[in-house]
Design a protein around this nucleic acid. Sequence first.
RNA 1: GCCCGCCUGGCGGAACCGGUAGACGCAACGGACUUAAAAUCCGUUCCUGGGCAACCGGGGUGGGGGUUCGAGUCCCUCGGCGGGCACCA
Length: 861
Amino acid sequence: MKDHGQAVTRYNAKEAEARWQKLWAEARTFETREDPKRPKYYVLEMFPYPSGRIHMGHVRNYTMGDVVARYKRARGFNVLHPMGWDAFGLPAENAAIEAKVHPRQWTYDNIEQMRAQLKLMGLSLDWSREIATCDPSYYKHEQRMFLDFLKAGLAYRKESWVNWDPVDQTVLANEQVIDGLGWRSGAPVERRKLRQWFFRITAYADELLSELDNLPRWPDKVRLMQQKWIGRSTGARVSFALKGRAEPLEIFTTRPDTLFGASFIALSADHPLAESIARSDAKVLSFIEECRRLGTSEASIETAEKKGYDTGLKALHPLGDGWELPVFIANFVLMEYGTGAIFGCPAHDQRDLDFARKYGLGVVPVVLPPGEDAKSFAIAFEAYVGDGVLINSAFLDGLGVEEAKMRVTARLEELKRGRGEVNFRLRDWGVSRQRYWGCPVPVINCATCGMVPVPAKDLPVTLPEDVSFDRPGNPLDHHPTWKHVKCPHCGGPGERESDTFDTFVESSWYFARFCSPQAPGPVARDAVDYWLPVDQYIGGVEHAILHLLYSRFYTRAMRRSGYLGIDEPFTGLFTQGMVCHETYRSADGRWLSPAEVTRDDQGHVRETATGEPLAVGRSEKMSKSRKNTVDPTEIIATYGADTARWFMLSDSPPERDMEWTAQGVEGAWRFVNRLWRSVVQVSDGLVPVGTPRPQEMSEAGIATRRVIHKSIDGVTQDLEQFRFNRAVARVHELSNALAELAGEGAGERWVLREGYETLARLAAPMMPHLAEELWRQLGHASLLVDEPWPLADAILLVDDTVTVAVQVNGKLRGTLALPRDAARPAAEEAALALPAVARALEGRSVRRVILVPNRVINVVI
RNA sequence: GCCCGCCUGGCGGAACCGGUAGACGCAACGGACUUAAAAUCCGUUCCUGGGCAACCGGGGUGGGGGUUCGAGUCCCUCGGCGGGCACCA
């Protein structure tokens, strides 16, 4: 074909995309409202932190969500697909410190920029529902709900150990402590006991665990991680009397069956008993201080030696007559778990064994492994933790481990020296942050009345605008006037709580706010009842525990306060992989960004500016530190959003990491153009829109129709199952088949129309702008986005003739074209008649023939 | 240390429930068009032996073993990579 100039050979993505985006916006195509007559579908991607620029991770996430939203919309669902901003957080304050901008200004500027960037992607979002969590119109509802939670006992304040940075004068999260030092100040972090706010997530520990089984559309991996995080363990609480003390000591164990193998008791350094002894014993005090200095970082735990200090106290075994056990303070016992005290059974716990060997304590085996002899069995340096039969254990002798656990627990209960107990690893969620850029905890501290919640009518408690970040610590504390208020209770002088909430609180309910973003209360009940739960939630695995667990808790807390009627916020969850890129490094160790390098004719990578050759490193997650990032806006400016979206969905399965390559984008861009060009070229010769299917059709035409309808069926299943890479491959296949038919002269004009219309429809969720363009080119006046999803003709999905593999002893010897569902004798005969089969048989007799209908004929000799 | 996942051409990956391994794309190579290049179009490409050729054979899904008429797929085992948790009593 002759080149008729630029207009015919090149698709102007930039112009076309802007045009369609404008039309969708004008038609308010994606604005949604409740409609009880239609089935709803709520698609949500984890909302972004407004860092200032979108990155490829966002592009991948929002492309996937948009494919789902557009597909479900075409299937007739009333689709809610909103977007907002997770707008509180530390980076805004850092910007305030470094660039002297107000966090609010910085945040809203960033939102402005990112919204413009996102809009270029052509996402089917209902922008009328946009929310920013730093807006008082959002967080005032959070404060309102906090008051409800307070009343319901789901929020409370207690003293708790925290990581304290003495220079920055703030609490640090565990993630912000690196090798025992504050991440910003570099100062050694101290453990301090501070009054902190908590959400009682543990109240729902059992439910949060058991309901994981009712989330079949969540990845197993995430459910498993949450299971482990909640960490339910069954055991017993056992009471040990202490010689010379009135108060008994309680311990928790999951192995009450090994109670007769006890040889010591160990207390946490933070245990009240340890602290009480320390008051009269300087040596104990210095040991406790040594334990505390060890800190909580992973490295220190790993390298720390198991150490104990014998307090000289004696505990009396609850089942032994006058049996005394030494009481140690040990550095490996955590106050936060169980009762902060344990009994040590060295024979059946490795850590206890190490401890016993170090301090010369007894090692008595009480569980006999199968096949061992009770007289000769001994423990050396490896504890036995498996199943077996109880020995040396009085009334438990001869029982299995499980049976023994039950029996001993029952006996302890009779004696009132213990009872069965379930413990969780999960702790209550500490939500206090000593930060400015967060939602203020709506509480006033009064010298007379104590803690007084801010009355609902006084909400919101807004952040003061005039703050200074000149000195370390919480600006809310330093503010001259903000925190000084009258006590709402007695009218006397009070002080505002200056803690703000962890930003995870905002993200724990934003999905509910999206249902009715203008509601005067936190939510409008009819709106949440209609829209919730979220049918499909999409985001990174990094939120597998924190955000997803908090949201599950918060939903229950909202239910308890009457805001919602559901338990689980997200019925479907998909965790997408990361976007990676290869890395470039110069000889002197500088990292270079993909934009700064060129590939020469030999395939060597050079720095564009200097021509210096570069080392190409392995592909890693795009990150600023490695400089291996590609700016989505530049890609969209060059190739258009559809190309970026198409490449994002190609090749790699969505749950896996993908590699971003320049060649890959080029390939996607070529396909966009090829598709556009083939429709432009073919459209003039097609039958008019709406022409009924002709009675007569050529073989090639019928064959192509089969491909078309199999494509509909295949793409539909692929999209339903999040197999976007396969959907992409199928669209390629259909495009190839149509090009082939078009190449065969006049071809079947009707079939070509059906084919290209189908192609446009199937590609629309993934490349929405191009699809509209093709639809228009094919002669339609309507918007494709309002067209229904195509339906496959079931008759065309089954072939009349099938290709069957013919094997001899499982080895492929040839193929056979047979009528569908061919009967055994005919199929067998045809198979045996194949020359390759006869050759393989070499005259040997056939023992039997395995026939898998329409698939395989296996001749066994 | 414990738990989970993964391993298929030069690369990303496909292969429904055990039934023709390598779809589709990238890259590479060859050809056409062009004064030339780019773009585009056509063709080839898992490895390997034989043959001028159409063609005929052998091997192959991280290694080893097993189940089965038949294994990328199921089981055992070893190795490698990735992720999660980590003093949890």
